[in-house]
Design a binder for these strands. Structure first.
Lengths: 340, 340
DNA sequence: CTGAAAGCGCTTACAG
DNA sequence: CTGAAAGCGCTTACAG
């Protein structure tokens, strides 16, 4: 019985019934007499028989497999989203296959997303370059013929798919406002690789927040970098070295916790005391945030909830667009500014 | 053309050839005249046709899907393993589906591992209770009829599957030896939920290391906890409060970086200065290790490499057992002990 | 309650 | 170089 596994025919033959009957007891559907049911179940157990999900998918058109596309699992942020989605999917009898971003533009036919007949696909979108946007939209349109698609993350408002998206402009506005409330006036924003025409993006909210507080928008306090600690460190380092110390920001809003961690290192290297000399606000509330020094103030973006909601939305068939939940997590890295 | 997608029959009909021919150009195998090939390809492109991987799997017995079972993706350690495996799998045209541990004992037939006819399965094993061991071995034996299995992680030496395992006893011996070299004599080990009869386990190496240095094995310096920061914090806290300060350990070897982070917090709460009063050695070299204060000395367990190697071993068909690579990463959290 | 038969969308010998 | 036919392991009307 090495690497084989029996088929429904083996079971039927040994139980002395038709494969139709075996199929019925397998799925618990259709009427089967208690006696034959018991008989068939015994044979199934004896053979340790498991029906082939792929044969079942072939005939029933349901694969009970969902696809998910994430930027990179190495950022725990995405691992949380995936975990939330996976747990919810299992609850409804589904499995989630994870695809990397690259599979959206992959040439290998054996792996193409479209080849897999999944019951649905969740795509986690982050800000893209204009060309990236075009390409994504194009690909989604193709995939749409094969499966239902749901979008999550920071999804531009002009995408027309069922969506759960973070209200980033609002989050940024409130972030600025929070720091202003702590006495900060020189507030930097570090992060964001590309611009986008969506009016929900971070930049917009950052600027709005400054305007609402009647504070000047200073180009020197705006740095672009991708979402890694190294990039964050380099970005803040460059900002500091380009400015006389008197003009250094007293607070920085980081794209995410990784960038915030990098900023912490850059600030320390410059001899700044945290949080007295510089407040740092992260985003995503990674597991390590409480263990940094100072413990990082961040934003809980409820990633597991987002993942679970995405699965529910995908399975529900609804077309709506919703906001994802979020909340400040106050710790030590943002402090009242009392002069330097 | 909404949510449908064409089949090989549609393509064949429109191109005026048999499905056999379409199949041949699809797979690039078998001889097809340049002319008909071009004709068929045009139709395929026009329809944006993608053959169903599930129908292909049905007939060819190859699904180009690998399964992977990991304890929990929320620990970046496992996310790294998965990423390494996934990248390698894609290189050879495979996809990896991730299953949680719970699926090893799942009752839902629709999701059962055995239902999915995967080309192979990688199971990442951590130390288990004796009963957990029994159950796992049992389950693996069942699954084995359906697919090839490879084990990775901390795999007891009496498991007989192709394996890549960390030489934990050796790692622990060298860890103790490293700390002894820094002048430490009171070295604690915090971690490990269960005992196991495998002689490669951490405890064994820890004890050996102490013996080699002619240092006493002190039960009070041995704490059990699971691999989370909270557990690590609680464990060290309890150890410290159970001992007169004069007997406090001067160094602790943590199960992993999460536990190490928890230990840092516990030590700080007790007023210990790090690393002067207490050296802490982590394991797994998580991305945040360099950003802790003091930067955490840890062990790079080359997780992505492990993941990639696991895929290669799975696909190779070889039966060997190998050691996984590892290496110390020296940072600031382990320092020479100069008295307290 | 039970079974014979068609069909899901492909691949693969086997003929020609 | 090309195609008719069988078969992969199931599910699902349709009869009985």
């Amino acid at each position: 019985m090495s690497t084989s596994g029996s088929t429904i025919y083996d079971i039927a033959a040994e139980a002395g019934v038709s494969i139709t009957t075996v199929s019925r007891v397998l799925r618990g559907s259709g009427a089967v007499s208690a006696a034959t049911k018991k008989k068939v179940e015994a044979v199934i157990a004896r053979h340790n028989y498991h029906p082939s999900a792929i044969a079942q998918g072939m005939t029933s058109k349901k694969t009970y497999t969902l696809g998910m596309i994430l930027p990179k699992l190495l950022n725990p942020n995405y691992a949380m989203i995936f975990t939330g989605a996976n747990d919810e999917a299992r609850r409804s009898g589904h499995l989630i296959s994870l695809f990397p971003w690259s599979s959206l533009s992959d040439e290998r036919p054996a792996l193409s997303l479209a080849n897999r007949r999944m019951d649905g696909l969740i795509v986690c979108v982050e800000y893209l370059s204009p060309e990236g946007n075009e390409r994504l939209l194009e690909t989604l349109k193709e995939l749409r013929q094969y499966m239902r698609i749901v979008l999550i993350g920071c999804v531009p408002s002009y995408y027309s798919y069922p969506t759960i998206s973070y209200p980033m402009a609002e989050i940024m506005r409130k972030s600025v406002s929070y720091l202003v409330g702590l006495g900060h006036e020189k507030i930097a924003f570090i992060g964001g690789t590309e611009e986008d025409r969506d009016e929900q993006r971070r930049d917009v909210g950052y600027t709005q927040g400054l305007q609402e507080a009647h504070l000047p928008c200073t180009a020197s306090y705006r740095a672009f970098c991708k979402g890694t600690a190294e990039a964050g460190e380099a970005a803040l380092e460059e900002m500091l070295s380009s400015l006389l110390p008197a003009y250094w920001p007293t607070a920085v809003i980081a794209l995410n916790d990784l960038v915030a961690m990098g900023c912490m290192n850059a600030a320390r290297k410059r001899g700044l005391k945290l949080p007295e000399d510089l407040s740092i606000l992260g985003c995503d509330n990674l597991f390590c945030a409480p263990y940094l020094s100072p413990a990082l103030t961040s934003i809980d973006t409820r990633q597991q909830e987002l993942g679970a909601d995405a699965v529910r939305l995908l399975l529900s068939g609804e077309e709506k667009r919703m906001d994802a939940g979020w909340e400040f997590v106050y710790r030590e890295s943002c402090a009242r500014y009392a002069g330097r």
